[in-house]
Structure formats: C-alpha cells, structure tokens
C-alpha cells in the first residue's frame, strides 16, 4: 500500500491536470475576494468572509469530477492498472490507494482556494463574523462532502475502463447533481415563501389543513407537503451537491446530519466499488 501511495503521489505531483485545477481554484478565490470587495464598496454594504469562504463547496464537485476522470482514466489507458496487478498488488489495495490519493488531491485543490481567500479576502473584506464553532462545523462538513464526492467519482473511474466514458459520466453526474439539488432547494424555498404552513420548520397542527389568504384551497400541484416534503428535505441533506449548496449559502437546518450522510455514501460506494472491482476482468 505504501509503495502504491508513494507512486501515486509522485504521479500526482507531476500531473498537469492537478496543477491546472489547483490554479483554477486559487484564481477563483482571488477573483471572488476582489469582486466582493468592489461590490461592497459600490453598494455600500459590509461584506464578511463568511459570504465567500464556502463558495468552493459546489465548485469542488465539478473540479473533482474532471480531475478524477483524467487522473484515474490513465490507469486503464496506459495499462498502469494491469502492471500493478502483475507485480502482486491486491485489487483492494489498488482501489484504496487510488481513493486516498484522489481525496488528498481534492483536499489540496480546496486548500488552494482557502489560501487565496485568506491571502486576499482577509485583508480586503475582513475576518469571519460567525462563531468559530460554526465555521469549524461547516469546514468539517465540507471535507466530509469532498470525501463522498471522491468516493462516487472513484467508483465510476475504477469500474469503467474507457477514459472518455469516465469523463462523460463523471462530469454529467456532477452537473446532474447540481441541477437536481438546486431544483429541490428552489422548490422548498418557494414553498416556504408561498405556503409557509407547509414547512417543517414551522410545524404546527395547521400543517395538514389546506387554506390560503382568501380561505380557498391553494392549487395542489404547487404545494410540497407530506411524504413529498420529507423526501425533498432528505434529498438536499443527502446528496453531496445539496449539501454543497447549503454550505455555500449557509442555509443548513441540521448541519450535523450531513457529515453522517457523507460518511454513509463513502462507505457504501467504496464497498460496492471494491466488491465489483475485485470481480472485474481487467484488460
């Protein structure tokens, strides 16, 4: 395992795509800090670091999908995977070593963003306004979310032997997760604004009564309630991109749940990945 990890980290250090992703995230951090500073100046409002610090959360999902597709894809296209097996490495060790390197690389890419925010954001915007405990909780949550993203994309990258297909599936999956999560969050936000009686945050005995301002029943198709509401609320906490959007806008109702879901996703996807990978016929 150690030798595999060492070799993978050596490859990572030389990987152009890794450095490109890191530079993109650093550049994004600088852009966001400067842009927020000028916006706050133009519109005369007090910006705080909290507003931009967790913006990396949704973006890292896309960056992670691109990086893992290209980094893992070469394992099959360059026959590295077969060579590792020939020299006697077990399939589980290969899977774990790739997962660990992917997680480490994605966390480092994230740290580039955080470094940019700390270098440019703190002097221009100032420090955090939220409690340190909340920041720490969100930071932990986002890192758990990154691990779950890596586990999903590594699963796809290890099971499909075609580099282009891995790229297509991973990138589309990342965007599909964004679209589904934003659609669910938008529906819930609209629900809260239009029909506040049908929200769990404002749970009351009236929850099951249909009424509107003029006393008539609102059109059913526009309301999210009952089991559908439960499913929607579960989805935004469970899906990694739903978590990312909640961290980004700091709208998480129950932030302690999300790292647990991330852990669950990581365990299940890695378990499935290792099980299928061990039975896979590698060309």
């Amino acid at each position: 395992m150690n030798k595999l990890l060492f070799a993978n980290f050596a490859r990572l250090r030389k990987s152009k795509i890794f450095w490109l992703c890191a530079i993109i995230m650093f550049g994004f951090g600088v852009f966001l800090s400067v842009n927020t500073y000028y916006d706050a100046k133009a519109f005369k409002y007090k910006a705080c670091l909290d507003d931009i610090f967790f913006t990396y959360a949704p973006l890292i999902g896309i960056i992670c999908s691109v990086f893992i597709s290209l980094f893992l894809g070469t394992e099959y296209s360059d026959r590295t995977m077969r060579n590792k097996l020939i020299i006697g490495r077990t399939r589980s060790t290969i899977y774990f070593s790739n997962l660990i390197v992917n997680i480490a690389a994605t966390v480092v890419i994230c740290l580039f963003y955080i470094a940019a925010i700390c270098t440019f954001g703190i002097p221009l915007i100032g420090v955090f306004q939220s409690d340190a405990s909340i920041i720490a909780e969100y930071l932990f949550g986002t890192f758990m979310m990154i691990i779950s993203f890596c586990a999903i994309f590594t699963l796809i990258g290890m099971l499909i032997q075609n580099k282009a297909l891995i790229a297509i599936i991973n990138v589309i999956l990342a965007f599909a997760l964004i679209i589904i999560s934003s659609a669910v969050i938008d529906s819930l936000q609209l629900n809260v604004e239009t029909y506040p009686e049908y929200t769990h945050t404002n749970h009351s005995a009236e929850n099951d009564i249909e009424y509107s301002d003029d006393g008539s029943s609102p059109p059913d198709k526009f309301i999210i309630k009952g089991v559908k509401l439960d499913i929607y609320e579960f989805l935004i906490d469970f899906l990694p991109m739903g978590q990312a959007i909640q961290y980004r806008y700091r709208i998480a109702n129950e932030p302690y749940k999300m790292p647990l879901y991330s852990l669950g996703i990581t365990i299940v996807t890695t378990g499935i990945g290792i099980f299928v990978f061990r039975k896979k016929n590698i060309r």
Binding site: V66, S69, L70, K163, A164, I166, A167, I168, V171
Partner: peptide, 11 residues
C-alpha cells in the same frame, strides 16, 4: 484526446 474533448464540450 477523447476524454479531454468530452470534458471541454460538456463544460
């Protein structure tokens, strides 16, 4: 490179 084409086109 097909993988890079795929990523660029989708992005």
């Amino acid at each position: 490179h097909r993988a890079i084409i795929a990523i660029i086109n989708i992005l």
